[in-house]
Amino acid sequence: MTEADASLPIVPATPAQAAAAADVESHAPYLKILFALFLLTVGEYLFARFLKDSPGPLIFGLVLLASAKAALVAWYFMHLKYERFWVFLVIGPALLMAFILTLLLFPDFVMLPDPLGEPVPATSGEAPRPAG
């Protein structure tokens, strides 16, 4: 590594960060988060077990619960809480691209006409008759 550190800005801690510093001394926050993650995992398990036959609420609830878990890990364990804006500049576009890519795949692979729902002519070669 070369002269990286020489030109780095050193920013003093804000009061909120200083407060967080005192908090960190005990590991309570991390264990609290772990407990929350435990509850969410159990919640997901029960949710999936008892709503397995109603796909709408199942997917909605599970996506919500999973996002909450992922957000907790990212925010507290990955220290996004303490990071500065540039980190969000790095992962923000990636998440946006991920969203755009997945979204734009839907018209071609999901929003398809149902092949079984289409009226099939009784014998091939004969044009389907107009209904009515």
């Binding site: 801690a13 960060q17 980190v87 992962i91 990636a94 890519l101």
Partner: peptide
């Protein structure tokens, strides 16, 4: 003040690891 509470200074290693994670996000998106 505990280091992980202080505003984390950007270091080359940290920039690189977050960039790497961004590439991983895209890989798993695929």
């Amino acid at each position: 003040p505990s280091a992980d509470a202080a505003p984390a200074p950007a270091t080359p290693g940290k920039v690189a690891i977050w960039l790497f994670l961004a590439t991983e996000i895209m890989f798993f998106t695929g």
